[in-house]
Design a binder for these strands. Structure first.
Lengths: 343, 343
DNA sequence: CTGAAAGCGCTAACAA
DNA sequence: TTGTTAGCGCTTTCAG
């Protein structure tokens, strides 16, 4: 930078001002142009470490995800990345594998790198790390899942509506024995969807015992498969299943095949999320589409908003805005009218 | 850090030495312990920006990927992340969407953040950006694809063997009219697999005109579908297809369905990569398994090796080590003997 | 509008 | 073994 300043014939402070968009107004337009030209000639790239050291801002955001290898998360990561990059920020992704210790390690590592804030997709309903983080005042936005204590802004798909859509679709097809293979109840998505399921069947006048709920121990195909077997042991007259998410639905598909049941002829199945390749399953999955990219983008926007206020006015009282993004049902081939004898 | 030093009753330089694993040997064990205790009490986290500024190392590596949303790349990203994290490094992922301008922007942004090196999965056979990068001397390791000029260390699956395995499998099933729907020839993987395909069929004594190659314009399902239609127009007697990768294979599956052809009864299909959910396609895909996680891990190891040498001896002559990881054929339901009339 | 000067938090020579 | 000192490259008062 000194070189740039020298070449432009100004002091390095002036060069700094000229090069920084937010302060370039303070400098003579002609001078500024001269500096920019010089910078270009010398191929100058500002040293972000020095800037961070001085300004105490890294223009970096930590993103905590369960697992990048789970097809749900790449789109949210991309959504985050896109809006962050546009504002000169960089996302630092970290996988926690739903492991509390690993999450803590990653969180600390990210803090050590002076991230300006976090976007967190790993919230559990009860989450000590997040409680502590709240006390410390780091800017945080939750995406997809949230904690029971509403401490942070939160962006999610409209799960309640989505589940209602799924149930109505099955109802419309003539199903009267609809079950829910739910996700883990330690996560907000798990309980929200159960609640919405119960409400929807109740509204339709279906007796609770005709609308059983079994819980899958994780949002994975193997766990979904086990839970589905359990369901069908106890409730063999089920004609339709709402899965907690698409991976659970995939497991359910495996369970049905294992039991010699055809989908959708014997049992209809609805997933949740519309993850990549849900349309390639056998049969292609009817599911609730959640706009994952937008989820990420919106979460990033919320964080930036918070960061901007942070910068201006010190530590303002954090407000816990909640944003629900609209979802819609995508009907494919895994749902049909119930078999005549099953209704 | 001054606070930590004060609490431990030492100078901050001593505290620095005590806290840094590589220099803690220079300090009295008892003193070191005292310092560490003090640091813990105060919840001290070193400021990485200051360290970077001083040491000119960020312990950060830039990773250029085409698209995180493509199921091939999350596993390589995780492999990279795992070995990098274990050594105190952080990966900065950037998506280029196979767009040269975007790639350049991301590359510069990453350089601006003082990354210590790059792992690049976006290499084209002719790649001006990489030529320039080579001149500049930044440590770089290529993963999966490589440039024609062998400037950098490179980690990839053993494509030639993989393709040979695929062809042998089809040959063993009795196929004698095998086609290859190849990936883009602007990428090393595209040409390597074509070359291996030609060699394998030739070795088996199949006439070149019985083993046509059509090129898909990208590694995507829609492009693969178009290319497959083109193939089947020109060569309707084809009984088996080797796809350039699983996404192309997926497109081929769509094309077959559109033409009323059954897989594997009418046409057998082999993919490449064994990406996530390839086993859920309809039919489950026979494919060549490439160890993507290991690819990433090995690339990270190579880069760290280079970085270590870099630190010790300044800029050593970069050596372009090439590592091929073993692959194997995973036989599923998309391959079978050719139909009687088609052989 | 521009220059001078200080300092962000850390590490690496050098001295003791 | 520890303390002293200087300085990494930038931004930001404060003067001019």
């Amino acid at each position: 930078m000194s070189d740039v300043a020298a070449l432009a014939g100004v002091h390095k402070a002036t060069a700094s001002r000229a090069l920084n968009p937010s302060t370039s107004g303070l400098v003579n337009a002609a001078t500024a142009r001269r500096v920019r030209t010089a910078a270009e000639q010398l191929g100058f790239t500002p040293n972000s470490a020095a800037r961070s050291l001085r300004t105490n801002r890294s223009f970096t955001v930590g993103v905590l995800l369960p697992d990048l290898t789970n097809p749900l998360f790449p789109p949210v990561a991309r959504g985050i990345e896109e809006v962050l990059n546009a504002r000169g920020y960089t996302a630092l992704l970290a996988n926690t594998d739903n492991d509390e210790a690993k999450e803590r390690t990653q969180f600390e590592a990210l803090r050590g790198r002076q991230v300006d804030g976090f976007i967190i997709a790993t919230a559990q309903r009860v989450h000590p790390l997040l409680d502590e983080a709240y006390e410390s005042g780091v800017p945080i936005v939750l995406v997809n899942r949230c904690t029971d204590k509403r401490l942070f802004p939160w962006v999610a798909g409209d799960d309640a509506t989505g589940m209602a859509l799924a149930v109505e679709h099955l109802l419309g097809l003539g199903h009267r024995s609809i079950a829910h293979v739910a996700g883990p109840q330690s996560m907000s998505t798990g309980v929200t969807r159960v609640r919405a399921f119960r409400h929807a069947v109740e509204t339709a006048g279906i007796a609770p015992e005709r609308a059983p709920v079994v819980v899958s121990e994780s949002y994975t195909a193997p766990a979904g498969e086990r839970a589905t077997h359990e369901l069908l042991e106890k409730h063999p007259d089920t004609t339709a299943i709402c899965a907690g998410n698409d991976l659970i639905a995939l497991g359910a598909l495996h369970a049905l095949k294992a039991r010699g049941l055809r989908c959708p002829q014997d049992i209809s199945l609805v997933g949740f999320n519309d993850m990549q390749f849900a349309d390639e399953f056998q049969p292609p999955l009817t599911t609730v589409r959640v706009p994952h990219l937008d989820l990420g983008a919106e979460a990033a926007r919320l964080l930036l908003e918070r960061l901007d206020r942070y910068e201006e006015k010190g530590h303002p009282a954090p407000m816990s805005k909640t944003v629900f993004l609209p979802v819609r049902l995508v009907v494919r081939a895994s749902t049909a009218a119930p078999p005549p004898h099953g209704a």
